[in-house]
């Protein structure tokens, strides 16, 4: 298990490095500099600014400087938000995004797994087909279409829930964003669970358990659920990435002051260091969470460890 974990950790490092170098080079391949505004600065002022931000150094040197800072958690200063470093901005905005994402993920797993299991147990019935039809729709329709339509019906027309973050202070303002973020994942997890549950329920050990007189619920809970969860677990990596991407849209639509909204603002403002910092942060987060999923997978399924 230790060997497996170590190998996984070592495998994640080149990926992370590739991400950082790729993102860094892309930003630095940009035509023009970050301070090319409409107003023209005197040449010596511009040279001073370039020196202050180390823009006068060669590209490999800047990259090394960036990597060196990164190891110490320093992502450089923001070019647009004066007096703030990128790390400070991320640190201020991320907790809210994390809370939102974690709640959406929890909701997606609970609802998705339950719906998928019920559909698998009732295979071929009306209920099963309803769950699958909902699932196909949920997978196909993007978050930025679902979110405004939900707002239109539940906030604007019915007025059951607040439409935006700032229009309320209670927990009710979390409801629509979390549901919106969770919906496509619920759909996908339900589909995955149904398929693998049907597969597992047909195995010999399940038949044996049933032959011993165990009820359906006990068989599912004690015997079928764990092996059926393996495909769902390996989907967790992509699911986390999708929730991060989705949170960008959801935060924008509901006006939630999280990291996603910062990212879009930074992208529209062309705040190079902040965009680069957030991309690196997101990428590191995804690589790290994928790593955790991989290790968990190894812990649950011993076959994976010895491949």
């Amino acid at each position: 298990m230790l060997r497996y974990t170590l190998l996984r950790v070592l495998g994640a490092i080149p990926t992370l490095l590739l991400v950082i170098v790729l993102a860094f080079l892309m930003v630095h391949a940009a035509p023009g500099g970050p301070f090319d505004d409409e107003r023209v600065l005197p040449a010596d002022v511009e040279a001073n600014i370039a020196r202050a931000y180390h823009l006068d150094e060669s590209l490999p040197k800047q990259l090394l400087r960036y990597l060196g800072g990164l190891v110490q958690g320093d992502l450089g200063p923001s070019y647009r938000y004066r007096d703030y470093t990128v790390s400070e901005l991320i640190g201020a905005a991320f907790p809210l995004s994390l809370k939102l994402g974690a709640m959406a993920m929890a909701l997606a797993i609970v609802v998705g797994v339950s719906a998928g299991t019920v559909a698998a147990l009732q295979q071929g019935t009306y209920l099963d087909r309803t769950v699958m039809a909902f699932s196909m729709t949920g997978i196909s329709i993007p978050v930025f279409v679902v979110a405004p339509v939900l707002v239109l019906f539940f906030a604007v027309k019915l007025q059951w829930l607040p439409a935006g973050w700032s229009s309320s202070t209670g927990a009710s303002r979390m409801v629509l964003p979390v549901i919106t973020l969770a919906l496509p994942q619920i759909a996908y997890i339900a589909r995955l669970t149904r398929a693998s549950m049907i597969d597992v329920l047909g195995r010999d050990f399940v038949r044996t358990a049933r032959a011993q007189g165990l009820g359906t619920l006990t068989v599912v809970r004690l015997h079928a659920l764990k092996p059926a969860m393996l495909p769902v677990l390996s989907y967790m990596g992509p699911a986390i990435a999708a929730i991060l991407t989705g949170s960008v849209v959801v935060e924008e639509i509901f006006g939630i002051p999280g990291l996603g909204q910062f990212f879009i603002r930074a992208a529209l403002n062309r705040d190079y260091t902040l965009v680069l910092g957030i991309v690196v942060f997101y990428a590191a987060l995804i690589v790290l969470l994928n790593l955790i999923v991989d290790v968990l997978y190894g812990a649950i399924d011993p076959r994976v460890r010895y491949r």
Partner: peptide, 15 residues
Amino acid sequence: ALPFIFFVILLMVVF
């Protein structure tokens, strides 16, 4: 393993 959509956004910012 890369969050591609963020790279696309980065691309759109830079160019």
